[in-house]
Design a protein around this nucleic acid. Sequence first.
DNA 1: CGTGGAATTGAAGCCCTTCAATACCTGTGG
DNA 2: CCACAGGTATTGAAGGGCTTCAATTCCACG
Lengths: 239, 239
Amino acid sequence: MNPLARKLEHFTRLTAADKAVLDDLAALPHRTYAPHTDIVREGEPPRVMRLILSGWACHYKMLEDGRRQIVGFVLPGDLCDLNVPILRAMDHALAAITAVSLVEVSTDTLGAMTLNHPRLLRGLWWETLVREEILREWTLNLGQRDSLERTAHLLCELFVRLECVGLADGPKCPWPLTQTELADTLGISTAHTNRVLQELRTRGLIILRNRTLTIPDLKALQRVALFNPNYLHLEREVA
Amino acid sequence: MNPLARKLEHFTRLTAADKAVLDDLAALPHRTYAPHTDIVREGEPPRVMRLILSGWACHYKMLEDGRRQIVGFVLPGDLCDLNVPILRAMDHALAAITAVSLVEVSTDTLGAMTLNHPRLLRGLWWETLVREEILREWTLNLGQRDSLERTAHLLCELFVRLECVGLADGPKCPWPLTQTELADTLGISTAHTNRVLQELRTRGLIILRNRTLTIPDLKALQRVALFNPNYLHLEREVA
DNA sequence: CGTGGAATTGAAGCCCTTCAATACCTGTGG
DNA sequence: CCACAGGTATTGAAGGGCTTCAATTCCACG
């Protein structure tokens, strides 16, 4: 199933017509990107929005001296930069982590598609609000949690988000991130990232091998991370 | 002038009718809050959006063990939580820093007010996008900048934002934040916050006294902070 | 089987924390 | 008008979490 439809179902019940619209969206011409290539660069004028169909991407920002911070992960079913064409220039870049397949959507197209589908429109708002809330949680993560908690928290978040779009397999999920990418997300050095992962392994909280993450006891990992899934607003499921 | 109108003018030119609508908005019944009190608590169902008319407020999140992170400052002219009533529960709190005066706006009211004012609607989208971008910049700030750069960056951001709504007076602006609040924003201890401020003072980059911040040479402070104002998207002014 | 990126590890050191003590400041009541 | 009180700011000393840098091992892939 269309990963966006799957995700929105966590928030609201979609009609068959709603789903048909989302399928039309996913049927637009696909674009593909090789791993570790830029999809959009900082400073470019934003032309379109993008719906990720498969693969992992990330938003990142850089300082003049080369320091890099990943400011968000974009997974299948995620819609990047809703309404961002309002702005003159992108102030963050979008890069493929794995091979990525996506469709480009113009503001007009999306407007026409949601015109008679208020539930979809609300769903897109929900998506935007959740993305913003994830950023707030990341701020909390970087500002207050130590490196072990912080790393555990990121693992929890990505696992739950993958589960939402059907990309987890029991306690397992794909894990394409290198330790360098992880370090650029967590605001710590690669050396320390490595040591933190060792610690999580030693404690039996994760198994990370062959680009696959296994979390034997999600609750335990969440406890270490002080992870509370409320900020992802999956209420319909929880309720 | 209405601080929201003043801010939106940085993005687009408003018609007299647009401004009249914003004045109607600001003429709704005011609510006031004492300094250091909560306006909304985490977990509450969000009822309304809020437009700040005067005073400073902040969004914050807490960990179970009491660690607190401020995740955003809300200044006069800022509209909090656009469309957030879509969600079931607030996942961050809103607190007054100084005495705050605001108006509450329901989704319906705002919808009716912007119905025949597409430019206003675009303006509100712009506001939302800028707020999200500020969060990304904070993520970069916490993840990559050291404590001196980070502190300098926050001072630059708040000064520029205050200037946008006419609350700066030449190189001066009000500065109601305690060092504890600054520390909770910057993710460093209060002791270190104090030392960093001393360092900025010693270097002649700031004068901070009597709850007033003076930045004798904004360009110099921006250089220390690696501050690039692009993320605030004040293009119309810059162009 | 060789090659280059990715992961791992060690040692030395610094940035920032912690904790505690002291000074300052602002408003309030005597 | 002063003294007191409580929050806020400042400072010192000791220590720890994380960085830096370099060396080494691992591993996927051509």
